[in-house]
């Protein structure tokens, strides 16, 4: 069907049902939609990080600080081979390789299960919801952030810190693709039992350097 006919039908339908007093588009204050779990509006960066950690842990995410704990976590999970976004080679490749962990900078889809972990940069974090913002600019390979069992997002001085969901949405800009990841992939489809790691990562980690 062409656009004109399609829209004309809808126009005619709306006209047939014109209300004597049309419903106005309400304005709303962000404070109304912001939950009580959000940090105070005047929070400093330390308390925003604190709230983020709390909320992120509440959805079964893990936060770690420093490369040492990252290596320990990976070795502990027997994750000895994975994907590292090329732009993160500088700070991470050397220490990981020295610990016996092997890295690839691209995902070969014929060996998708070879990657036990994927490390990419976080474009931002949202304190209110405990979400990590992933977008095209921060993540050169969508698969690298999704297919491995462990997904580590790197948080550094360049990472935007949003206090609320409203703030993060305000900042979507022209990015063609943005994901707010709030914990590991999960389902409760089988008898309502919570299982993590359905199609996406079973472990969602935030690494702060």
């Amino acid at each position: 069907m062409d656009q004109q006919c399609f829209l004309d039908n809808i126009r005619a339908a709306v006209a047939r049902n014109a209300k004597p007093s049309p419903t106005p588009l309400p304005e709303w204050d962000p404070a109304m939609v912001t939950s009580q779990l959000a940090p105070d509006t005047d929070s400093d960066s330390a308390s925003l990080w604190e709230t983020f950690c709390q909320r992120f842990r509440a959805v079964n995410g893990q936060t770690i600080e420093g490369i040492g704990p990252l290596i320990a976590l990976l070795l502990n999970a027997d994750a000895k081979h994975g994907y590292l976004a090329p732009e993160l080679n500088g700070p991470l490749a050397g220490p990981l390789q020295n610990a016996g962990i092997t890295l690839e900078s691209a995902i070969d889809t014929t060996r998708i299960d070879d990657y036990a972990f994927g490390i990419t940069r976080a474009a931002g974090i949202i304190a209110e919801t405990g979400s990590v913002v992933i977008n095209e600019s921060s993540t050169p390979s969508r698969l690298g952030a999704l297919a491995p069992w462990i997904h580590v997002t790197l948080i550094d001085a360049n990472t935007k810190v949003f206090a609320t969901l409203v703030d993060a949405i305000k900042d979507l800009g022209d990015e063609p693709y943005v994901v707010f990841a709030t914990g590991p992939s999960k389902t409760a489809d089988v008898e309502g039992i919570l299982i993590e790691g359905v199609h996406g990562p079973g472990m969602q980690i935030c690494l702060r350097l």
Binding site: S141, R142, L172, E175, P176, V179
Partner: peptide
């Protein structure tokens, strides 16, 4: 868990 905002085809330098 995942909220996606899709604003067109992938970015030119995106691999996947």
């Amino acid at each position: 868990v995942y909220t996606q905002f899709i604003n067109g085809p992938k970015a030119p330098d995106q691999i996947d």
